[in-house]
Amino acid sequence: TLKVHYKYTVVMKTQPGLPYSQVRDMVSKKLELRLEHTKLSYRPRDSNELVPLSEDSMKDAWGQVKNYCLTLWCE
């Protein structure tokens, strides 16, 4: 499951381990945003700071799954 905080919160079913490009595509379609305006980030467990997502950091983000849910933020 993927939970995304935006102006409102959406929850989507997804497969764990998807690459950033696929996750961003899913989120942009769900929120009806243009792909270039979809910026995603996540919060590591040991931090209060949001970390921007990229293809490289997506593996780390999937490591933050809690209760089968990855929580992301969209700007």
Rank of each mutant, 00 (worst) to 15 (best):
T14G: 03
V27I: 10
V65T: 14
V11N: 00
N67V: 00
L31C: 11
K29H: 14
R34E: 15
V51C: 01
P19A: 11
C74Y: 05
E55L: 08
Q22C: 08
G63M: 12
Y8F: 07
Q15T: 11
K30M: 07
T9K: 02
D25C: 07
T1N: 09
V51P: 10
T71K: 04
P16E: 15
K39V: 13
K3R: 11
T71M: 02
L2V: 08
D56F: 06
M26G: 02
V27T: 01
V27Q: 09
V23Q: 02
D56P: 03
V65D: 05
T71L: 03
V65H: 13
W62A: 00
C74W: 01
P16Q: 13
L18I: 12
Y20L: 05
Y20D: 07
K59S: 14
T1S: 07
H37P: 06
K66N: 15
P52L: 09
L53R: 07
G17W: 09
K13C: 10
K29N: 09
P44Q: 11
T14V: 15
D46H: 14
L40R: 02
T38S: 02
L33E: 00
S28Y: 04
T71N: 12
K29T: 03
K30V: 08
M26F: 06
Y42T: 00
K59W: 04
L31F: 06
L53E: 01
M58Y: 06
L18M: 10
L50T: 01
E36D: 10
Y20P: 00
Y20K: 11
L35A: 15
E32V: 02
D25Y: 10
E49I: 09
K29Q: 13
P44E: 08
Q22V: 14
S57D: 01
L53P: 04
W62S: 03
H5T: 02
Q15C: 09
R43H: 05
G63L: 12
C69P: 08
E36C: 06
T71C: 09
C74P: 03
G63P: 00
L2F: 02
K39C: 12
L53W: 01
Y20R: 02
P52F: 00
R43P: 09
L53S: 05
M26V: 04
S54G: 11
E36H: 04
K30E: 11
Y20I: 04
L2M: 07
M58H: 03
L33S: 02
K39N: 11
N48C: 14
A61C: 14
T14Y: 14
C74K: 05
G17H: 14
V4D: 08
W73M: 05
Q22H: 03
C69I: 09
K7S: 09
R34Y: 08
S47F: 05
R45I: 13
L31Q: 04
K3M: 11
A61I: 10
L31P: 01
E49L: 10
L31G: 00
T14K: 05
G63N: 12
N48Q: 12
Y68P: 08
V4Q: 03
S57E: 09
C74M: 03
L31T: 00
R45M: 10
S21C: 11
T38Q: 11
A61P: 02
Y42K: 05
L50A: 08
Y42M: 02
Y8T: 13
D25A: 14
D56V: 07
Y68R: 15
Y68H: 15
L40A: 00
K30P: 03
P44K: 15
S41G: 03
Y8N: 13
L40W: 02
